[in-house]
Simulated scan of single mutants.
Amino acid sequence: MKLKLPLIAAFVAMLSLTACGGGGSSSSNSGSSSVASPATLTYTDTVVGTGTTAIAGKSATVKYTGWLYSTTATGNKGNQFDSGQFTFTLGSGSVIPGFDQGVTGMKVGGKRTVLIPSSLGYGASGTSGIPGGSGLVFDIELVSVQ
């Protein structure tokens, strides 16, 4: 019984801290929720490919859709910011580190959802259409590896 009161007090303190979110709005990010970012890079294979494996130094062609990470949206997919298809060399630094790491290890024909923290995306400064500090979510399909 003596342990119950400190446990309840700790829970109430934690709950009140989580309720203290900055209540202001950002004028440069109208129409979307506050900036959020996952703690670490994570990925989920929705389809496991059977073809060639994507490794550093190889050229990978991917189809992708990118969203801003959101803690309140289904699948953490907030506002969509881009989609398309392109080819890049893995490990060359030509894409953000989280995208590069998210594709590495995939096999051709595979599909993967990758959650990228801001530190492996566009960082504190952001880029056009992506606010600083934003985490990202990508659905990626590996089309080919050469």
Rank of each mutant, 00 (worst) to 15 (best):
M1F: 14
K2Y: 14
K4P: 15
K4A: 15
K4N: 10
L7M: 05
V12T: 03
V12K: 07
M14K: 12
M14R: 14
L15F: 15
L15W: 13
C20D: 02
G21D: 07
G21N: 11
G21Q: 09
G22Q: 14
G22I: 14
S25L: 10
S25A: 11
S26I: 07
S26Y: 09
S32D: 12
S32T: 03
S34L: 13
T42Q: 07
Y43A: 14
T44R: 08
T46W: 11
V47Q: 00
T52N: 13
A54D: 01
I55V: 12
A60M: 08
A60P: 11
T61R: 08
Y64P: 11
T65H: 06
W67K: 15
L68F: 11
T71M: 09
T72N: 05
T74A: 13
G75M: 01
G75L: 04
N76A: 14
K77T: 13
K77M: 13
G78I: 00
N79E: 06
Q80F: 09
F81A: 02
F81I: 03
F81Q: 00
D82W: 13
S83V: 12
G84S: 15
F86T: 02
F88I: 11
F88E: 09
F88N: 12
T89R: 08
G93D: 00
S94I: 09
I96Q: 06
G98W: 00
D100C: 13
Q101R: 14
Q101N: 15
G105S: 10
G109P: 05
K111C: 08
T113P: 01
T113F: 01
S118C: 12
S118W: 07
L120A: 10
Y122A: 02
Y122H: 03
G123N: 13
A124R: 13
A124S: 15
S125E: 10
G126H: 05
G126I: 03
S128Y: 04
S128N: 05
G129L: 00
G129E: 02
P131M: 06
G132H: 02
G132C: 01
G133W: 10
G133K: 07
S134M: 02
S134E: 00
G135F: 02
L136Q: 07
V137M: 03
F138M: 03
F138H: 00
F138G: 03
D139R: 04
I140T: 01
L142H: 05
V143A: 04
S144V: 03
S144Y: 08
Q146S: 12
Q146C: 09
